[in-house]
């Protein structure tokens, strides 16, 4: 060690604390870390899957919405009361049924995703919890209306959209939790 280095060490460590020996851990501890990392990676995989499913669901909602809008655009056109009109009406009715089926399937998928999201999300701030409760109330209202008109494309569409909103709230909350944890 040069005189300069010696001086520097004396000025920053005058008591010689650096000379103290390092401390041997009396535990292994790797198993706990491995388990925590496994859980973390599993969680991330689940989120990626949930994100993928959400993206698919969102795309489907978009496709269904566009289809419905196109039908609404077509509806005002005067259709002559002929055999071909009956055919057109029938084909519209079949499309509605398909749309309802697709939306019911989407609604079930969203239910499953929301269940997973609820389990993965920790506690949330009061205002977020109130927002979640409001969306859930709206879904309950739609369900009541659906019990009267179970074939309403519009109602099923509303239900799916509300569930997408709910999923978005849970996902944002999870991102906040994750960001907070990562900032530690």
């Amino acid at each position: 060690m040069t005189a300069n280095e010696q001086w520097q060490q004396n000025s920053t460590d005058p008591l010689g604390l650096r000379e103290l020996e390092s401390i041997e851990p009396d535990f292994d501890g790797w198993d706990e870390i491995e388990a925590a990392l496994d859980a973390h990676h599993q969680n991330r995989r689940n989120w990626r899957r949930a994100g993928g499913a959400l993206a698919i669901a969102a795309s489907l909602v978009l496709v269904v919405s566009i289809t419905l809008l196109r039908q609404q655009d077509v509806a005002p056109v005067d259709i002559p009361v002929t055999g071909s009109a009956t055919l057109a009406e029938n084909s519209t009715s079949v499309t509605d049924e398909d749309n309802v089926k697709a939306l019911i399937g989407l609604s079930q998928t969203m239910e499953e995703q929301l269940m997973k999201l609820r389990q993965s999300t920790g506690s949330m701030p009061a205002d977020t919890a109130i927002y979640v409760a409001e969306i859930e109330d709206l879904i309950a209202q739609v369900d009541v209306e659906l019990s009267v008109t179970p074939d309403s494309v519009d109602l099923w569409g509303q239900r799916v959209n509300l569930m997408l909103d709910l999923a978005q709230v849970y996902q944002q909350q999870w991102e906040i939790d994750y960001g907070r944890m990562a900032a530690l």
């Binding site: 870390i33 925590a36 990562a182």
Partner: peptide, 10 residues
């Protein structure tokens, strides 16, 4: 130490 390593690996 444990928590620090978990955070570091994440």
């Amino acid at each position: 130490t444990q928590e620090a390593f978990i955070t570091a690996f994440k």
